[in-house]
Computed example of a mutant assay.
Amino acid sequence: MNPEIPSSHAGSEPAQRCGLVAIVGRPNVGKSTLLNALVGQKISITSRKAQTTRHRITGIRTEGAAQFVFVDTPGFQTRHTTRGTGALNRSLNKTVQSVLSDVDLVLFVVEAGRFGLDDAKVLALVPPGKPCVLVANKLDLVQRRAELAPWLKAMQERHPFAEFVPLTSKREDEALRLLGIIAPYLPEQPWYYDADALTDRSERFLASEIIREKLFRLTGDELPYTSTVVIEKFEEEGALRRIAATIIVEREAHKGMVIGEKGERLKRIGTESRTELERLMDGKVFLELWVKVRSGWADDEARLKSYGYE
């Protein structure tokens, strides 16, 4: 039976719990989808394309007396030397390692029934003694559940996991079940944020993430993941937001992919981004998009910093 999330009752109010929880795993195992489900609202972009999360994104969920501060991380990059992306990959890996050093709990996400070399490299980063929960995601894709037993035994031999939680991260009820399981691992201390907080990221940052998500979703596998979005202008006029953003690509051919025939694809990226931004920001959004070629940006330390990568 899973432990329940501590709740407040008159006369026996429990102490507040609050802690940092890292979500780690190889690219494309569903970390961002899980984060969004745990927070209860989309704050991290999701895509079929591997490696779409590039920044440390904090999501916050307060349930009962427990406040969970989730940290989404980039999928650890095992190919540092990929031509033209070395600096970007080193930056992503540095982010993963710095996150793991200062959290209270780690959620190690894998695909249920699978464990490969890239998974092993991420697991090796978990500091000894740090509580770590094995989250077996995409349970809905497992044909024979009985085959999970030997797999789980092998996983327990690899690492002393504190808990094993099989789930399908898209389901809200399963996210709530996971919250109940990990709540006791949070330290007893005051909350870091207000009870209704969802993220510590700015609207400006969330705007760049939403545009980048639409970019990847609407270009499919055509566009390399070494494309990014830079917010050039973000102005608030009452309930209106005026946003100007530039999509950065590596090559002239990539520019054509983004713009599309007669500008139709870029127009659709803009329309879908604006619609979601208006819903998120509860107001009118005026959005301008440009596409620029910056060859070699992903292996240029100075340019990475100017684009917001640490």
Rank of each mutant, 00 (worst) to 15 (best):
residue 95 T to E: 13
residue 104 D to Y: 06
residue 118 D to S: 04
residue 126 V to H: 03
residue 36 N to S: 09
residue 44 S to K: 10
residue 40 G to V: 14
residue 75 G to Y: 09
residue 86 G to E: 15
residue 97 Q to F: 02
residue 112 A to N: 07
residue 104 D to C: 10
residue 70 F to I: 00
residue 74 P to H: 10
residue 122 V to Q: 01
residue 91 S to Y: 05
residue 50 A to P: 15
residue 73 T to F: 01
residue 131 P to I: 14
residue 56 R to F: 03
residue 112 A to D: 09
residue 60 I to M: 08
residue 136 A to F: 02
residue 51 Q to N: 12
residue 67 Q to W: 00
residue 26 R to I: 00
residue 136 A to I: 00
residue 47 S to E: 05
residue 36 N to Y: 06
residue 99 V to G: 07
residue 28 N to M: 06
residue 54 R to W: 08
residue 24 V to K: 08
residue 55 H to C: 11
residue 121 K to A: 05
residue 104 D to W: 03
residue 24 V to E: 08
residue 123 L to W: 03
residue 122 V to F: 08
residue 135 V to L: 11
residue 84 G to F: 09
residue 28 N to R: 07
residue 110 V to E: 07
residue 28 N to Q: 02
residue 128 P to G: 11
residue 121 K to D: 05
residue 95 T to C: 10
residue 120 A to R: 14
residue 97 Q to T: 07
residue 35 L to I: 13
residue 76 F to P: 04
residue 133 V to S: 11
residue 95 T to R: 03
residue 49 K to L: 02
residue 129 G to C: 12
residue 112 A to L: 00
residue 42 K to Q: 12
residue 116 G to Q: 14
residue 38 L to G: 07
residue 44 S to C: 15
residue 98 S to V: 09
residue 82 T to Y: 02
residue 59 G to E: 01
residue 51 Q to H: 10
residue 81 T to H: 14
residue 32 S to Q: 12
residue 40 G to W: 09
residue 97 Q to I: 05
residue 55 H to W: 02
residue 29 V to C: 14
residue 37 A to S: 15
residue 48 R to F: 04
residue 111 E to N: 11
residue 74 P to Y: 07
residue 53 T to F: 05
residue 90 R to P: 02
residue 95 T to M: 11
residue 47 S to D: 07
residue 92 L to G: 01
residue 76 F to C: 02
residue 119 D to T: 06
residue 29 V to N: 12
residue 29 V to G: 13
residue 103 V to M: 10
residue 37 A to N: 05
residue 94 K to F: 06
residue 127 P to K: 14
residue 34 L to G: 15
residue 26 R to N: 00
residue 58 T to P: 00
residue 43 I to V: 15
residue 117 L to A: 15
residue 73 T to K: 02
residue 90 R to C: 06
residue 81 T to N: 13
residue 113 G to N: 02
residue 73 T to L: 00
residue 90 R to A: 11
residue 85 T to V: 14
residue 128 P to K: 14
residue 94 K to R: 15
residue 39 V to I: 13
residue 100 L to K: 14
residue 38 L to I: 10
residue 24 V to A: 15
residue 83 R to H: 08
residue 120 A to E: 13
residue 56 R to E: 10
